[in-house]
Design a protein around this nucleic acid. Sequence first.
DNA 1: CGCTTCATTGATCAATCTCAACTCGCGTGG
DNA 2: CCACGCGAGTTGAGATTGATCAATGAAGCG
Lengths: 263, 263
Amino acid sequence: MSARKAKAKAERVSNQSPGQSQLYCPACPVYELNVCQAARQAEGAAARAKSLKIHQSVIHQSIHTAPARRIICREEDLHDAFPIVCGGWAASVVLLSDSSRQILSVLLPGDMVSTALLFGPRPHCSVEAITEVRYRTFKRTELKEIVFTHPDLFDRFSKTCLEEKGRADQLIVDLGRRTAEERIARLILNLAERLGKRGTMQAEPAEMDFPLRQHHIADATGLTPVHVSKVLSEFRREGLIKISDRSLVFLDLAGFRRLAHMR
Amino acid sequence: MSARKAKAKAERVSNQSPGQSQLYCPACPVYELNVCQAARQAEGAAARAKSLKIHQSVIHQSIHTAPARRIICREEDLHDAFPIVCGGWAASVVLLSDSSRQILSVLLPGDMVSTALLFGPRPHCSVEAITEVRYRTFKRTELKEIVFTHPDLFDRFSKTCLEEKGRADQLIVDLGRRTAEERIARLILNLAERLGKRGTMQAEPAEMDFPLRQHHIADATGLTPVHVSKVLSEFRREGLIKISDRSLVFLDLAGFRRLAHMR
DNA sequence: CGCTTCATTGATCAATCTCAACTCGCGTGG
DNA sequence: CCACGCGAGTTGAGATTGATCAATGAAGCG
């Protein structure tokens, strides 16, 4: 038992190694800049605060690491930096005055922390690390200049904004019109799909990294942690999925999909 | 009694007259194009399908009217047109297979029907008229060209996209973490605020046009029409607001705000 | 070892839904 | 002019979903 867990842990650690995280970069919105590859080669030598020449422009970036539960970006602060997640999971979250919280979206490697930060200093939501997170920040003014002068980058950026809006709209429908089971199943399937698109998962379905705690699921689906626990127990009892060691296995993908789409 | 109603009705009709609707145009995202003013002058003569020269570019537009409950734009269809609401209220809405529905946002005069339509033919949600709606459509390719070559227009467009995303995020929080009373109160106050910003309301608060049916409120807040009825009755009983003749009066604005913000 | 976070489970409660009946106003067609 | 049907809103009774409260145990960590 503890042997299996140790093995799982070792694998998880290797997933976060630099070698593995390169896989995410092609999905990154600034991939075309070649900033990250260049930076990675320089990484061993000078640790942070690099500047790179892209065509005619200079772009400054720096690399950061945040431990799980650390807030990367605070809603009420002003930011001149534009962060992009390189490794690990994070969540953009709104805190209410009674200390309840709502997760607006889960950020995976390659995701921009907030598209709004390209236009101004207000991120309009906080971002919190779920696992340990590695991320790069760029200077807004410089990145903005570059994105707006490179049509291919601009296309990619606007496409990402549209996708983000589409996912927000989907979440509205989920929260407004679906049951607890449907919401949870759809959250999981959406994450699996997004991970799949980034070439991160071996086979499309079957198994995935799943570092979310039940309270993250609760915050993302507008439910209570204890109700999440009950629903997940039921999924388990019905042989749909299995979650253990921060990893999720689909046992009956078809059935699970059916459950998520229904209504 | 019926005399008062007749008077209210007459006023409503006058609200929809061309003279009144000009007030909305300064809030319209294509106001800088001067397209609408020019078109309005030509309106009496040639009814539709006009072309106007803006700087070096030609832009084609046409004017439409949709009766209440008519679908203006269908999620699954492809559109080459980019519609903007000029008068009346509409809603962007997602229909589920069990024929329940979720309203993503209420469209007021000056609102773009879907920002996504500037980038491609898929609106990713349907749009339905709430009242009778007047709207103009532009050719996507032409409008896109013009928006991307006029920096002031582009700024306005991107600001609108951010605002839209911000409102979507707020709705996610409302649906995920707030009670029925809070959701309904916030919907109403948000509408009042948006109308106020467009210089449409005489005084900021006090009274506003309110053409929403209770089932619209239900679809926007993820509730049931009968529960909406009960909550509104309670608001009335507590002397917070009064709704009649498609118009809403704030009787205790401070109290109503308190109710909406709490949590 | 003791602390904290996380997850599970049962009992009870509250918010909201569902169903049903009824009213009202409006438009339509006989 | 009236009968009718329809959409909208109201109200009550009962069912259901998910929240709250509380107790417990397991795992990770200094």
